[in-house]
C-alpha cells in the first residue's frame, strides 16, 4: 500500500517535472521566435554584438594610434588614408571612434550594472517588507526623480570632479530609481503568489525568497529595462563628455570629441558628424534591442 502511494507520487512528480520542463522550453522558443520575426530588433541585436566586438578587439583594427598627434595632417577631410578625416591635432578620427566605442560601451554597461544592482536591492527591500522602510526608500527615490537626470548628473560631476570613473558613478546614481521602482512594483504583485507563501511556510529565509525565488521570475522585466538603460547611460555619458565633464584627455570618447570639435563645426563639419553618428547608431541599436526584447517577452505590451 505504502509503496503504491509512493509510486504514484513519484509518477505524478515526474509528470509535473516533464511538463514544467516542456513549458519552459516552449516559452523560450516562443520568445526567440517572436524576436526573430522582429526585423528591427534582429538587426539591432547584430549591431550590438558588432559594437561589443569593436569594443573588445577595436585596438587591433585601428589604422593609427588614436592619441598620436600629427601636425602635418590637421583638419583633413575624409580620405582613403584617413577614413573619417583628422581632428585639430591631426589625430585619426576613425581610430578615435573605434577606441571611443570601448569607452562608451564600457561606461554604459558598467553604469547599468551598478544602478541595476543597487536599485534591485533597494527595490526588493521596499517591495518585500513594505511599511515604513518602503516609504523611506521610496521618498528617497522621489527626491532623486524630482531632479531632471542630466542636471543631477552634471551637479554630481561638478562636485565629484572630472573623470570617467566619476561619470560612471554619476550616471549610475541617477538611474537607481528606475530599477528600484520596477523591482518594487514586480515584487509587490509577485509576493502574494502561492509559491512565495509556500517558500515562507517551508522556512526559507527572506533573502533566499527574494533573490532565489522571486527575482528569477521577474528577471525578464529587469533585463528589458537594463537594455534600454544602456542607451540612456551612453547618451548621458556623451552629454557629460560634450560639456567637458567626462573623460580626461587624451582618452577618446565620442561626446568629448564632439564637444572639442564644436568650435570648428562650420569649417570642418566631418569632425562633429562622425562622433555624433556613432553615438546615435549605438543608442538606436540598444533602444531597438530593448523594444524587441520587451515585445518578445511580453506580447501583451507589444506596440500595436
Amino acid at each position: 500500500m505504502k509503496d503504491e502511494i509512493n509510486k504514484s507520487e513519484k509518477v505524478a512528480n515526474l509528470q509535473e517535472f516533464v511538463e514544467q520542463d516542456f513549458k519552459a522550453e516552449t516559452k523560450i522558443k516562443i520568445v526567440i521566435d517572436s524576436f526573430k520575426q522582429n526585423k528591427a530588433a534582429l538587426v539591432s541585436f547584430f549591431i550590438v554584438v558588432f559594437l561589443i566586438f569593436i569594443a573588445i578587439f577595436g585596438r587591433y583594427l585601428m589604422p593609427y594610434d588614436p592619441n598620436i598627434q600629427d601636425r602635418n595632417v590637421i583638419h583633413q577631410d575624409a580620405s582613403l588614408s584617413h577614413l573619417f578625416g583628422t581632428d585639430e591635432h591631426g589625430r585619426d578620427i576613425f581610430s578615435r571612434i573605434l577606441y571611443g566605442t570601448r569607452t562608451s560601451i564600457f561606461v554604459g554597461i558598467i553604469a547599468v550594472c551598478v544602478s541595476l544592482f543597487v536599485g534591485t536591492v533597494f527595490g526588493s527591500i521596499a517591495g518585500y517588507y513594505g511599511g515604513k522602510i518602503d516609504s523611506v526608500i521610496m521618498r528617497v527615490m522621489d527626491v532623486v526623480l524630482s531632479i531632471p537626470s542630466i542636471l543631477l548628473a552634471i551637479a554630481l560631476m561638478a562636485s565629484l570632479g572630472k573623470g570617467i570613473d566619476k561619470a560612471v558613478l554619476a550616471i549610475s546614481i541617477v538611474a537607481i530609481p528606475d530599477y528600484a521602482m520596477i523591482v518594487r512594483g514586480c515584487l509587490l504583485s509577485e509576493k502574494e503568489n502561492d509559491y512565495v507563501q509556500a517558500a515562507k511556510v517551508v522556512g526559507a529565509s527572506d533573502s533566499f525568497i527574494i533573490f532565489k525565488t522571486i527575482l528569477p521570475n521577474i528577471a525578464s522585466s529587469i533585463v528589458i529595462r537594463a537594455t534600454l538603460g544602456v542607451s540612456s547611460a551612453i547618451l548621458e555619458a556623451a552629454a557629460l563628455g560634450f560639456l567637458g565633464l567626462g573623460v580626461q584627455p587624451p582618452i577618446a570618447e565620442w561626446g568629448d570629441m564632439l564637444g572639442r570639435s564644436r568650435m570648428f563645426m562650420l569649417s570642418y563639419p566631418h569632425e562633429v558628424f562622425f562622433p555624433g553618428a556613432a553615438i546615435s547608431l549605438t543608442v538606436l541599436a540598444f533602444n531597438l534591442l530593448g523594444d524587441g526584447l520587451r515585445d518578445a517577452f511580453d506580447p501583451k505590451s507589444r506596440r500595436l
Binding site: 528591427a40 560634450f242 561626446g255 564632439l258 563639419p269 555624433g276 553615438i279 546615435s280 538606436l284 533602444n287
Partner: peptide
C-alpha cells in the same frame, strides 16, 4: 520616432546649425 529618441540632442543641434545656418 526611433531616430528622434536616440539622437543626442546636442549633436542634432550642431547638425541644424551646420545645415540651416552655415
Amino acid at each position: 520616432v526611433s531616430f528622434g529618441i536616440s539622437i543626442p540632442m546636442f549633436w542634432f543641434a550642431i547638425m541644424l546649425i551646420i545645415i540651416f545656418s552655415g
